[in-house]
Design a protein around this nucleic acid. Structure first.
Lengths: 190, 190
DNA sequence: TGTACATCAGTGAACGCGCGTTCACTGATGTAC
DNA sequence: TGTACATCAGTGAACGCGCGTTCACTGATGTAC
């Protein structure tokens, strides 16, 4: 039992997870070192292991945190028919494309997560399940048939669209990818 | 001018690009070292720079080669209405999900490509343009309206679906993702 | 045809560097009495 | 209230290791004559 209250340390931990989220989404998991992650949080590398057992453990915490943020955005959307549509418009905006560090962790990291430690993939699985549920819940109000299947189709289309728009170097093609993805996504809403 | 014909060296170069394709799709760009790439090709690390100016240059060559392969598969499909459907069924199969090293480079590497050197991204852009064209050409035979937009919607959905199916650790969820993606994709074919 | 030589694909050790991780230490904070 | 002490978040140098890249070299291949 600590003689100190843990509040300050937990705050530091939360700050590391937050700044690491931005950095990992921008530079990738393999592309970011522990020292960079710690200096983003205003600390030196040595303090890292007072908060996390390993880099993978931090990445798992970051993935869980980032998906929780996405979940909460979706979960607190107004219950009208247009709010999911607005979310999609923002998701497929050039602003989201151009700022991965502030955006969706799936769009930024999904193929890297598939190649990473099981502890990270399990955190991802738990987080994305909740997101699938909340999207499916929104969709069923429009059309009750196979809401979950359509939620999955929508989700994978959004992620793939932003990834492709980020990968290509031709700005016109990139814009076209976003526009086409938006048309496809809105058609899926019915 | 070489006193030797270059045939043998070109063959070695092609072998490196081929084996590197498999390895990069499995372990990622940042996740694979030059020594591993060379030993896959049955060579030692030092020979690498007789064939490529840098690791990025090889990765660009691999991306171009991999996309060419995908393009050729699509381009040589029979001209009947069912062949694109068969391609999609294979693309969204558990076999493709479970063997990224033999599969689509976009599904394996798209978010990493978005974070990589411009030389790689330019190779990707040129290659995916050709693939978009060939898919759009196939779609227009079914329905001429906005074939390119629908081709892009299909492509991003396929890529996102396989990535998500690979990332999650729950086998039932992974299968469900593939099934839902297949339903969505076939609906888009009309 | 035979021999001396030029070429060059490939070898493998080494370079400096940044990685993930460890650890002896510091100094501010809170406790004991 | 004051002082000696225990705690512990954070420091920063160091560890072994693999990275991308370089380079002196080997030895098989083809050329010259």
């Amino acid at each position: 039992v600590s003689r100190y209250d843990q509040h300050q340390k937990q705050q530091t931990r939360a700050r590391i997870i937050d700044t690491a989220g931005r950095r990992l989404k921008r530079d990738g998991i393999d592309g970011t070192g522990v020292s960079a992650l710690m200096s983003d949080a205003g600390l030196t590398n040595g303090a890292f292991y007072a908060h996390f057992g390993s880099k993978n453990e931090l990445v798992a915490a970051v993935v869980a945190d980032q998906l929780q943020i996405q979940h909460d955005i979706l979960d607190t959307l107004p219950e009208d028919g247009r709010s999911l549509q607005s979310f999609i418009i923002e998701y497929l905006s050039s602003d989201h494309r151009d700022h991965p560090e502030e955006g969706c962790p799936s769009a930024a990291l999904l193929d890297e997560i598939g190649k990473t430690d099981p502890v990270v993939r399990e955190a991802y699985t738990a987080g994305i399940e909740d997101i699938i549920d909340v999207i499916a819940g929104r969709m069923s109000r429009v059309d009750g048939i196979d809401a979950r299947g359509r939620a999955l189709g929508l989700l994978t289309g959004l992620v793939g669209t932003v990834q492709l728009a980020r990968a290509v170097t031709d700005p016109e093609l990139s814009d076209e990818v976003l526009t086409a993805g938006l048309g496809t996504a809105l058609r899926m809403l019915g």
